[in-house]
Structure formats: structure tokens, C-alpha cells
Simulated scan of single mutants.
Amino acid sequence: MTPLPAARALDQFFLDARSRVLDLAATLDRVGRGADPAAAAADPRAKLLRQALEVLLSDAPNRAEKVQQVFSLAYDANWERPTPRF
């Protein structure tokens, strides 16, 4: 499969990406304006968001994969497979 030319990808996805960035900015503003923003800044979820944003701002390839890894648990070979409940 031939990759989409960069200019065409921008034409096709810019408005959607802009909307998502604005939504994220609004969420971060709400957290920052909330009571006790220092506690929120120390929350592990806020740290994960900051890590993901650092990945997005980098020029590294496969950013989507790397952002997914930020939010994922590490592989555990001893993980117990759940059994279905019937």
C-alpha cells in the first residue's frame, strides 16, 4: 500500500486533529483550574498525559504506538488468564 502524501494527509486530517488538540487543551485547563491543582499534577494519570504529550511533540517515528505504550501495562509472563463466567 502506498502511503498518503503528507500534504494530502494534512488536508484530510487537519480539522479533526485540531479539534482533538483543542479538546485536550480544554481538559487540561479544567484540571488546572480545579481545586488543588498541585494534587492533580502529582496524580499518576497526569504524569502519563505529560509523557504522552512528550512523545507527540517528538519527531520519533511510530508515535501512535509509543503513546499507546505509555498508557499500557508492561507484559507480565505470569499474568493469569481470566476464565469466563457462565
Rank of each mutant, 00 (worst) to 15 (best):
P3K: 05
L4E: 12
L4G: 05
P5N: 09
A7L: 08
A7W: 10
A7S: 11
R8E: 12
D11G: 07
Q12T: 15
Q12L: 15
F13D: 10
F13W: 12
F14E: 14
F14K: 11
A17E: 13
S19H: 13
S19Y: 08
S19M: 15
L22T: 11
L22I: 12
L22M: 09
D23I: 07
A25V: 15
T27Q: 13
D29Q: 09
R30V: 07
R30G: 10
V31P: 01
G32N: 12
G32S: 13
G32W: 04
G32A: 09
G32F: 07
R33S: 13
D36M: 08
D36C: 13
A38M: 12
A38D: 10
A38Y: 11
A41N: 07
A41S: 15
A41P: 06
R45N: 14
A46P: 03
A46L: 07
K47V: 06
R50N: 10
Q51W: 05
Q51M: 08
E54I: 01
E54T: 04
E54P: 04
E54N: 11
L57M: 13
P61W: 01
A64Q: 07
E65L: 02
K66I: 02
K66F: 00
V67F: 03
V67K: 00
Q68Y: 04
Q69R: 01
V70I: 02
V70D: 01
F71C: 05
F71T: 02
F71A: 09
F71Y: 10
S72K: 00
S72C: 01
A74Q: 10
D76L: 04
A77R: 01
N78G: 06
N78I: 00
E80F: 05
R81Q: 09
R81K: 13
P82I: 06
P84Y: 09
P84R: 14
F86E: 07
F86R: 08
F86V: 05
